[in-house]
Amino acid sequence: MMRTTRRRLLGYGVAFVPLCLMGGVSGPSWALTEKEKGCPPDFLAISAILTASPELNPIMAPRVWHALITKDDAFMARYRRLSDEMAAHRIRSWPDYEASGLSAQKEIHSIAVAVVGAWYLGRVGEVLPRSEINTPAFITYEGALMWRSTRDVTVIPTYARGGPGFWAEAPSSVKTD
């Protein structure tokens, strides 16, 4: 699967999405579900562009895909529209996406937001405070990207930073935050 990805994306100008993302990365060593197997070869690269993160965990991509198509029957088709548009506009990096004007196209942009949302929240779907039915499709807790921009100051809940009382001092970044 990964070799196919490399070949396919050569046309995209792989320089913007480092090879290390794809080269030498074997997929997860457990059996993928059918839905996960259907993860499009360009899904990781497109996710990397839209989240402006070259360092996405490749093993996470099939799980993200699985969650997206589980919660939205039409997602596969919608995703294809997004990836086609991005190919048509030769988008290989975040600045490309910004400059392309695609973010003004509500429908296309909403698909991009769905992809980004899945990576950031670690789930797809709305949280239901009083239900255990139709709850979000779970992807990851620790891998959710929403934690990374604050992890120098606060905790990811249930993971300690250190001993008691650190919270009494102002965070070192507070002057420039």
Partner: peptide
């Protein structure tokens, strides 16, 4: 952590 429907002080605390 594996629930996906609960977070600190939010979501379905019972789940």
């Amino acid at each position: 952590r594996e629930c996906g429907n609960v977070s600190t002080d939010a979501g379905n605390r019972n789940q």
